[in-house]
Nucleic acid binder design. Structure first.
Lengths: 202, 202
DNA sequence: TGTATAATCTAGACAGTGTAAAGATATAAT
DNA sequence: ATTATATCTTTACACTGTCTAGATTATACA
């Protein structure tokens, strides 16, 4: 797609890819409209043909991040089809892995896109789908007698929040390294998840 | 302190107060070195006499934020002296209240200060003290038979992470408003906290 | 097919930002 | 009292997001 014509052909997606690349390579501080344009090889104001402002580009990059997170959770879940215990623990691990490995995308995904007055339908869609995927897994755990029945959405939000918070604090280095070294992130997540469970998750 | 002399007298603290004020009034997007200097009535590079760079100012504002959070948790805890059940639930509510009411300070406190290569001793001190305060309350809950004994630090981190994550997702509007309207933030927190408890927390 | 219209991209400009350097002014130390 | 140090202002620079005007290409319609 990256031919040498005046018109790029697929600039919108190229800009999103460039943003993801910059986040992974140079970190969140290096992500600017202009750096993304440079990375994609276009002029500094070319992005405005596809994104109304910087927030819109960030929303698009965050949307891509949610797609990756969804795919990772979906894969973890599919890998243990009809084994709810393994599904939920694998998802917790996948969530943590994603946050650690794609740290800056993870951070940008949760840095206020939905708080904006503007609506970003694709972002809303995939983030809702991700929440629904978690709820589905939690629900199947309930059906399997792993979690108490009822209030699936409440349970699901509580579990998501728990995973999210523990992972976030760890990324922020707010969890003392003596604790983190002793237990490791996955063990903390498992311990926390087990509080909800009727049988032991391992 | 704000006399009309060339030397301000207490510029460092004035800048921190100005930063806090801007965060509360105009939000995180309006927080710049120059806006803080303007708010304090000094030239745009005056802050460099007291802060090595913007990160250092943000660290100082975040430190002030942690002092406020600590004070709020301490007050909630002190108000229910030797009533561990009420202490822990009051702390959860206080944590959520702080996050909601001082939203932008809360966000800046958890936006990577400790990830920096530079060390900010006062920030480390108060954030450790806050974690220690939570651990103390959790420990007293263990002594009172509210939480299972042992692994206090693990338990404490899991509970902190849980509160932090649920509150963060709510601030981010990632918790669907149908769920949030139905249960309210405090109820979600209480439900989640109860998973750790041997007796019912209310 | 040819031409008007729209979409896409470039170039230039502007105000705002973080930061560095040089100089002015007040305080502290001797 | 003089020197040294801390504090603050002014100026300057590169970089940012965004706006405008104009160039180039694709699309739609006659």
């Amino acid at each position: 797609m990256t031919n040498d014509t005046y018109h790029h052909g697929d600039l919108k997606n190229a800009l999103i890819r460039a943003g993801v690349e910059i986040l992974a390579r140079d970190g969140i501080g290096a992500l600017s409209l202009r750096s993304v344009a440079r990375e994609a090889g276009v002029s500094h104001s070319a992005p405005y043909a596809h994104f109304s402002d910087k927030q819109a580009l960030i929303a698009a990059i965050s949307t891509e991040g949610f797609h990756r997170l969804y795919a990772k959770l979906e894969a973890a879940s599919a890998h243990f089809k009809s084994q709810p215990i393994k599904q939920i623990t694998a998802c917790a691990r996948a969530y943590a892995d994603f946050a650690v490995q794609e740290r800056d995308i993870f951070n940008i995904m949760f840095s206020g896109v939905l708080e904006q007055e503007k609506a970003y339908p694709e972002f809303v869609e995939i983030s809702k789908a991700t929440a629904a995927l978690l709820a589905k897994i939690v629900s199947s755990c309930q059906d399997a007698g792993i979690f108490p029945t009822g209030k699936t959405d409440l349970l699901s939000v509580a579990i998501w929040g728990q995973m999210h918070g523990i992972v976030s604090l760890a990324l922020e280095k707010q969890i003392s390294h003596t604790v983190l070294d002793q237990y490791k992130l996955n063990e903390i997540l498992l311990f926390a998840l087990n509080q909800f469970a009727l049988v032991e998750l391992t």
